Computed example of a mutant assay.
Amino acid sequence: MPTVLAISGLRVTIYPNDHRPAHVHVIGRGCEAVFNLHCPDGPAELRENYEFSRRELNKIASGLNVCAAALCDKWSQIHGHYR
């Protein structure tokens, strides 16, 4: 599971054997969340949350949106097309 970005000490990963649509897993501090990327233009949308607070999720989403183009490019490198 390659780490493609770090946000506030959290790992943002894209699993090589994962499914579409384009999404990332954000992992850290005993929590995990999954965000759909809505490539190529975003915004990131929360799909699943396991223990992150609403405040943390908002910070994560903001960080993902700033890096949306790079994350979509990384997804494309690993999986091909976004959809």
Rank of each mutant, 00 (worst) to 15 (best):
R47K: 14
R20V: 05
R55N: 10
L57Q: 07
E32R: 07
A70V: 09
L71K: 06
A69P: 10
F35Q: 01
C31S: 14
N58K: 15
N58R: 15
G80A: 11
G80V: 05
S76T: 10
L64C: 05
P40W: 08
V34W: 04
R11S: 14
I78T: 01
R83S: 10
G80E: 11
L71Y: 13
I27H: 03
F52W: 08
V34I: 15
F52L: 09
V34F: 05
G63D: 10
M1H: 14
N36C: 03
L46R: 02
Y15K: 09
C31D: 07
S62N: 09
R11L: 09
C67T: 12
V24G: 00
L46Q: 04
Q77A: 10
I78H: 00
L37C: 04
N17Y: 15
V12L: 06
A6I: 14
N58C: 06
V4N: 03
N65T: 04
P2H: 09
Y50E: 13
M1N: 06
P16W: 13
K74C: 01
T13I: 14
E32Y: 06
A61L: 11
P16I: 04
N36P: 01
V26H: 00
N36R: 10
N65Y: 11
L57D: 02
N36H: 12
D18N: 13
I27R: 07
V4G: 06
Y50G: 02
R20S: 09
M1D: 09
A33K: 00
L10Q: 02
L57F: 12
H23S: 07
R47G: 09
G9F: 08
V4I: 15
N17P: 00
C72H: 09
C72L: 10
W75P: 00
F52P: 02
I60N: 02
R29G: 04
C72Y: 13
H79W: 03
A70I: 03
P16F: 13
A61N: 06
G80T: 04
A44Q: 02
L10M: 08
G80C: 08
T3V: 15
V34A: 07
S53Y: 12
A22I: 02
K59M: 12
A61W: 04
F52A: 01
V66K: 13
V34N: 03
I78Y: 00
M1F: 13
A33S: 06
L5I: 06
G63I: 05
K74W: 09
A69E: 15
G28W: 03
I27N: 04
R83L: 14
G80N: 12
I7D: 08
G30A: 04
L37E: 05
A69T: 13
H19E: 09
S76C: 12
S53N: 08
D41E: 14
